[in-house]
Design a protein around this nucleic acid. Structure first.
Lengths: 182, 182
DNA sequence: ACATTTACATGATGACAATCATATTTAAAT
DNA sequence: ATTTAAATATGATTGTCATCATGTAAATGT
């Protein structure tokens, strides 16, 4: 059955939202096209009317998710605190797409890598802008270094079974960034 | 055909070595049991004499690879320089298993996560020991923070298609660590 | 209203992978 | 030497997935 133009646009948006959550939760490979479509309230058949392939969905989902990624209106140190928190570590599906997906992008198409590059540029600029000495060479260095540490810390914290060590990785990284930024 | 005891032990070692390289290069999901066995010079049938499942191979490969992971005899800053180098970024198969596999461990078995926890503990201790103020609370903080930054930087640098930005991520993270350690 | 387009559903198709069953060959044990 | 046990090979088996072919019904344009 055909659907109205708006309905189709909304369906497409829902597919991207749902795919973002599922990909972040389970990884690109562990999520089937049929699973995405079912979660979006449709069957798998209509998928290829919206996207040319699963690779296409991956690339568009990345662009979609990374565009929305941001840190509200708080200060930088508030952003760091919430980013390096157990709540974020324990909820990848609703969390940062960079922490959840960056490592897997290496095995994806050029379009996916291009979307990631654009998202990374934006994020570095955002952080740089939020730092006290914005515009200086030190600020760019601190933006890149602290963002790498944040992403790395969440990935490491999620990769282990030892809750104590996992918490320490988050907390020490937060303290290390706090001590060295600004 | 049966093989000698030593031959079998060597076969097992070769499977783990080859699996480590393939997993780091292509990811756990993209490497089949048959591919690992073929690369080790055998057919897929004998696999289950060495390991109970592919999950078992993943966990044992991680333990194997992380145990060997270390930074030679150089200084910490030399280790950082070679870790955050284009050569390392561009050769995941022969590179650090943490940078190559950490993010994927989230989707693996508890045994894999336990192997990663052990590897992470060891690596943090190694770095802490190599720092000038080893033993202090600051040294542990710096060890964890800089290791998170190194791992995150390599993952980010590998996830994008823009060589200039990728190089900058490596270089600025190196400078940021250099400026804040010791 | 009618014709046409099109978004989605249903149901193949073909490829590939993990695991297992059985056969073969040879190292060890006696 | 002969027997036994084990390591690997060969060849199913079973399930899953991406993609495609075709059907259907509703929306849009005339």
């Amino acid at each position: 059955m055909k659907v109205s133009r708006e309905q189709m646009a909304e369906n497409r948006r829902r597919i991207l939202d749902v795919a973002s959550r599922l990909f972040k939760d389970k990884g690109f490979d562990a999520v089937s096209v049929a699973e995405v479509m079912k979660a979006a309230g449709m069957t798998h058949g209509g998928f290829y009317g919206h996207f040319t392939s699963k690779d296409d969905l991956v690339a568009q989902t990345l662009a979609h998710a990374l565009a929305a990624d941001s840190f509200g209106d708080g200060e930088f140190s508030g952003f760091v605190r919430s980013y390096l928190a157990p709540r974020h570590r324990d909820n990848p599906g609703s969390g940062c797409p960079t922490a959840g997906l960056a490592a897997a992008i290496r095995h994806q198409t050029p379009a996916a890598k291009a979307a990631m590059a654009e998202g990374l540029r934006t994020q570095i600029a955002r952080i740089e802008h939020a730092l006290p000495d914005q515009g200086s060479a030190d600020a760019r260095r601190a933006a890149i270094g602290s963002w790498a540490a944040m992403v790395g810390a969440v990935i490491l914290a999620r990769s282990i079974d030892d809750p104590e060590l996992s918490n320490e990785v988050l907390e020490q990284t937060r303290a290390w960034i706090d001590a060295n930024v600004g």
